[in-house]
Design a protein around this nucleic acid. Sequence first.
DNA 1: CCATGGATTGTCT
DNA 2: GACAATCCATGGA
Length: 211
Amino acid sequence: MNIDKTPLNAEFYLRDAEIVARNLLGCILVHHDPEGVLMSGRIVETEAYLPDDPASHSFRGPTRRNSSMFLEGGHSYVYRIYGIHRCFNAVTGGGGVGAAVLIRALEPLDGIPEMWMRRYGEPIPAVPGKSGLRGLCSGPGKLCKALGITAGKHDGADITGETSDGKLFISGGRPVPENRVGVGRRIGMTRGRGEEKLRRWRIADSSYLSR
DNA sequence: CCATGGATTGTCT
DNA sequence: GACAATCCATGGA
């Protein structure tokens, strides 16, 4: 797949999480894994989490679990949820702020056979079908498993700077025009924890969204 | 297609 | 001790 493999620089992330969330649409999440396998996908859905938000892990200040969310923009925040899944965030803003963008869904691009193997533990069928590919990275936990993103290796990692084996980063893609962007409520909020906030962005006509 | 409930574990109250 | 920014299988329309 002919994609730009230059990581976005730290300046990109040193802005408000809502701006970054909007501008990450169309960008490419890339994992150059330790064995040299390149896996990537186009970002089609994001959510912004700010410290003013009861749903944000940073709402009550730093703890052991969320400490990397308070790093400077351009780092990774990976956490475990429901005992099983991992979720990947790009930290935004200055150090100590506690803001990040959750990557919720990807359109698979590079390394699809390897991603399939990681997700399902068996080789990709000869004809996976569009519905098969659609489900490969259509959720925050799914895409972490597919790309091999782990808390141990990637939580707190720098996602800017030079590419190398094992590097996780985001490169710029085609900008997404405003008339193809949808904004709405986030997923999974319960009991009045900010579910009314419009901090979810998606490429409206993509068939690779999480819902 | 949509709605429901179980899995599973580190973290915070 | 309860919860959590989820996923998947299952059942019914």
